[in-house]
């Protein structure tokens, strides 16, 4: 039911972990729903220089988390802002319909992390 890309990111997830001195942290989802994503980002000169994730969730939740880290690493904040859950799903060659709303939260986690960074900056 999952695309090859989803299974690739699920089996070999990129950028797993947590950045200790993160510029921003975004946590979305809740364990009762079966999905939580925690994304930590490092931002230097408005550029995302590092990003890591930890996820509790199904195959789609893990694959989307992994994919979003690949999509944003090295990107300007303005570009990262444009990434939506849809962008992530498309980059994975699509997700099963049932997974589109519940397990496709990675971009939300990214935006939450960027928000957190901006708040810390007082911007």
């Amino acid at each position: 039911m999952y695309s090859e890309k989803v299974m690739d990111h699920f089996s070999n997830p990129r950028n797993v972990g947590e950045i200790e001195d993160a510029s921003g942290t975004g946590t979305v989802g809740n364990p009762a729903c079966g999905d939580i994503m925690k994304l930590t980002i490092k931002i230097e000169n408005d550029k995302i220089t590092d990003v890591k994730f930890k996820t509790f969730g199904c195959g789609a939740a893990i694959a989307t988390s992994s994919m979003v880290t690949e999509l944003v690493k090295g990107k300007e904040l303005s570009e990262a802002d444009k990434i939506s859950n849809q962008t992530v799903a498309e980059a994975l060659d699509g997700l099963p319909p049932v997974k589109m709303h519940c397990s496709n939260l990675a971009a939300d986690a990214l935006h939450a992390a960027i928000e957190d960074y901006k708040k810390k900056q007082g911007k």
């Binding site: 699920f10 509790f56 199904c58 939740a61």
Partner: peptide
Amino acid sequence: FVEGESLLLNLDM
């Protein structure tokens, strides 16, 4: 601390 479907996918592999 882990989710069932991801365990099933791993077991399936």
